[in-house]
Design a protein around this nucleic acid. Structure first.
Lengths: 196, 196
DNA sequence: AATGTGTAAGTAAGTGATTACATATAATGG
DNA sequence: CCATTATATGTAATCACTTACTTACACATT
């Protein structure tokens, strides 16, 4: 009967959620399995989170503060647009690789769309990413770097597909998919799309 | 007690699956709700499919024969690569718009990855799409239309993000998202990416 | 002694699937 | 052509099981 503080348990539980999702699949994400993975009983889970839904909200909150926080910092930074776009993309990819269950969790929430708060959170996360990308692109156009006639939103749409596709490949093709320099390779294609 | 043939019921049931997924969300997809939507009882569902899993397999089979069949026909057709790429993309988008639950269904199967047959089906669907795209791109390069130095697989990766992103936008932004000329707009960006 | 963290055993509700039985439609034989 | 038998499609009730969550109680730390 090892005891830990709620703070520690909460982190362990959120970690376990992502771990289960990526390694065992979404259907294995029950409070039973979650408890087993953390090494406590099911009841203890509810000592640290008032509901399963609350765990999900907590994870989304982490994404907002960790990932979005960093991405915002990059996008609004002082570097040139080209550098910012590259750093942004690489940071984004890195985060997804370090938190492999995140994408599935987010999109499963989109698919189970009966919870307004969860859906709003996801919407906020994605639209913020998109608008940060749009910002970088607009800056790059103003700098005279990229073609001004392009629609920034369309570019952002294409951009958003990259991390999602990455995650799907990671699930379906964990061995075969070439992850080396992934962000660099994608960046080059984005650059070509944007060029004058 | 209206009676219909198994063939008709099977179609109705598969339709209802996609309808429920897109309109009510994945968590509403129970055999109970399915029966209600079709207008029969739960037991009757199992008269026409031996399991819920079999319904999913049936839908995947439809995707393979309908969508993939058409895409293959386009990709391997006699038109120029540029025309084929455009037609391919537009057909792909059109299919997803007409079968709005499909993407969610497919990727939820990827997320619940404990069923090898379902996962293999999904893998087959996606990798076939990718290789058809790669084919078109390779042809275009051989025609001297596009930059030969580009990695066809990377382009295909970017391409695959387009339909997925489309579907996510449809769920999260059903009103705001601009669907007009979507395939044309995406095609233009693809073209820029491919250009010499 | 008080408080925070744990456990074991429950709950009600929902799941996919099966059962025994009913009835509509088609096929058959006189 | 009609009565009878099969067959295909339907229903209502129920199955065993899983789910998220709760309760009553125990024990560790301070």
């Amino acid at each position: 009967m090892k005891r830990e503080t709620t703070e520690i348990r909460q982190e362990q539980i959120k970690r376990a959620v992502l771990d289960i999702i990526f390694k065992d699949g979404l259907d294995q994400l029950s409070t039973r399995n979650l408890a087993k993975r953390v090494g406590i009983t099911e009841g203890a889970i509810f000592r640290h989170f008032k509901s399963k839904r609350d765990i999900m909200l907590g994870i989304m909150q982490d994404v907002k503060s960790d990932l979005i926080g960093e991405l915002r910092h990059i996008a609004l930074g002082a570097e040139g647009s080209e550098k910012r776009l590259f750093t942004f993309l690489c940071r984004h990819v890195k985060y997804l690789l370090e938190n492999k269950g995140i994408t599935i969790l987010l999109f499963s929430e989109a698919a189970h769309m009966n919870d307004k708060e969860l859906k709003d959170n996801l919407h906020e996360i994605l639209s913020e990413q998109k608008s940060l990308i749009s910002k970088i692109i607009k800056d790059g156009m103003a700098e005279g770097l990229w073609n001004k006639k392009l629609d920034g939103d369309d570019i952002a749409t294409i951009y958003m597909g990259i991390p999602i596709t990455l995650n799907i490949e990671l699930i379906l093709n964990p061995d075969k998919f070439n992850i080396n320099n992934f962000c660099k390779r994608m960046f080059i294609l984005m650059q070509r799309m944007l060029s004058k």
